[in-house]
Each structure stands twice: as structure tokens, then as C-alpha cells.
Amino acid sequence: MDEVKLIGFMCNWCCYAGADLAGVSRFQYPPNIRIIRVMCSGRVDPELILDTFLHGADGVFIGGCHLGDCHYLEGNYYAEKKVGMAKRLLKAAGVEPERLRLEWISASEGERFAEVIREFTEEIKELGPVKCEKEELEAACIAAADYKLRILATKERELLEEGNKYGEVFTMHEMDRLLGDMVQEDYEAKRILLKLKKPMSVKKIASELNLKPNVVFRRILDLKRHELIGIHEIRDNTPTYIANTREGLE
């Protein structure tokens, strides 16, 4: 079968119940989606989403309660930010962000559930299977698991609504720039880290990843400071680096 495969994470109280209602009411939709029940859409984190793509899913669907109706009051607000982060990472890895879709579907919206899934399945069929390199997705996945982006995805709401420790509230524009920069940096760093399973020089990495050597060098310094990589050897005045296996790559 060359059919696309979709995985859906749905909250127990709204979307999963909406899917049940679609069943009870016999609203048909394509069978490509496989549903995983979670208690709250806030349970889903960017790593989980990226990992699902890494496992071969062609589309990922997150379903929660309508904003304001979350059974746990605020979980879906966090889900929204986490899905946003995952979309940025997907984009960095060269995967169409439309392959990830977040929808609020209540327990009473069985018909809408079927409609949305029909539409989403069509969209993914149109896009076909994911076309990026496995290593690109892997880098995005490790970046998503990194504490920096995990904190940011969680704190985004607070920074936009209440501000940081110093009471500075971020505008949407500022937040967008901050997230954009951090995701890009972290993604590049993780790509480099993956390359360094084998020893490599800055120049080599730069040419393989199509990055500027000065950018690669900056990320290398960061990675080294965090003891994720070390110097493998220095030959002809050119150092080559290698990942510290235990901490860097698991």
C-alpha cells in the first residue's frame, strides 16, 4: 500500500470523545488515521510530534478541547504553543508544516470531526510521503528534546501574557523572532552534532550541511562548551571534532 499514514493524538475529554461520536453517528472518513488517546492535548510535546514523523508518519493530528473548555482548564493553550514549536522545527527540517494540524473539536462535534479528518487526509495525500532526509528529522527531534526549546515552548504563553522575570511582556513580533532564531540555531547545532558521529572539520561540515563556516564554528563552540563534542585530532593546523557519545547522542 502506498497510502499515507496519519497519527492523531487526541484528548480524552473532547476530541477523542468527538471521534467516538463520529463513530456512533456513522460519519465516514478515510481509514488512514490511527488515534492515540492522551488525557490532555497539553500532554503532547514537540519531541513526541517530531518522533512520530521520524517513525514514518506522513501527517500528525493533535485534537483538543476548544479554548476555554479544557478539562484541565489550560492544557490546550500549552498545546497550541507546543504545536507551534513543532511546526517551526518541521520547517527547519524541510518538512511541510501543514503536515501537522491542531484542531479544537468538542465531544459534541462528531460530524465536524469526520469532516476535518477527511480534509486533512486529502491534504496529506496531496503532499504524499514525507520527502526529507532522515537525519534532518532526527536533528529536529533532538532539538525538540533539548531543554532550551522545551522551556521556551512552555514559557511562551507566560512571556506573551505576563512577561519575563523583569516584567517585560513580549510582543508577538518579538516572540516570533526569538523563537525563529532559537529554533534555527538549535536545529543547526543538532545537525552538526549528528554529523559528528564521525570526526569532521568545520569546513567539511559547512560544505555538507550547506552552512557558512563561521556559523558552523559558532555552533561548534557552543556544543563544545556544553561538552557535547570534543576535539578529535589536529592535523595540518586544522582540528576535527567528534561527538561525545554518551551525552550527545542517545
Partner: peptide
């Protein structure tokens, strides 16, 4: 209540 939001937030 077991929503799991803390788990997905924990850095």
C-alpha cells in the same frame, strides 16, 4: 488530575 502538561513541559 493526570493531564500530563507538566511532563511535556519539564525541560
Amino acid at each position: 488530575k493526570g493531564c500530563g502538561s507538566c511532563g511535556s513541559a519539564c525541560p
